[in-house]
């Protein structure tokens, strides 16, 4: 097993765990969304890692290289990033709305049961 891959997987696991911990404990809605972004990043990194091949290069036709990394995860990550951006943009808008109604981003409980 390649060291790069190992390190990358470790980072992925850490990012996801940190993000999850943030979502589970933070009250500030902004922080929750930041945590979610962290998780998103983690998953993106994971996709890249899955497609990574030790010694491979970017999948663009090039006579000098015989080994390419898996191109598909890269395409997926492209999509995933854009989706992440969109969700974040909308999240920010919702937070602005929330803030304009409540004057704070701390969630102290509202609708329940």
């Amino acid at each position: 097993m390649n060291g790069v891959i190992m390190a990358s997987y470790f980072t992925v696991a850490s990012l996801l765990s940190i993000g999850l911990y943030g979502v589970m404990t933070k009250r500030n809605l902004m922080k929750i969304f930041i945590s979610l972004s962290i998780m998103d990043t983690g998953v993106n990194l994971m996709l890249i890692t899955i497609g990574y091949l030790p010694g491979g290069t970017a999948p663009i036709e090039n006579a000098n290289f015989a080994k390419y990394v898996d191109p598909l995860p890269q395409a997926l990550v492209l999509t995933a990033i854009v989706i992440g951006v969109s969700v974040t943009a909308l999240a920010l808008v919702l937070l602005i709305k929330y803030h304009s109604k409540k004057g704070t981003l701390e969630y102290k409980g509202g609708m329940k049961w």
């Binding site: 989706i83 951006v85 969109s86 943009a89």
Partner: peptide, 16 residues
Amino acid sequence: EVTVLFTAATGVGFLL
């Protein structure tokens, strides 16, 4: 994907 971005942009405009 483009549509997601488009949706988000629309949503941003709509909500703000």
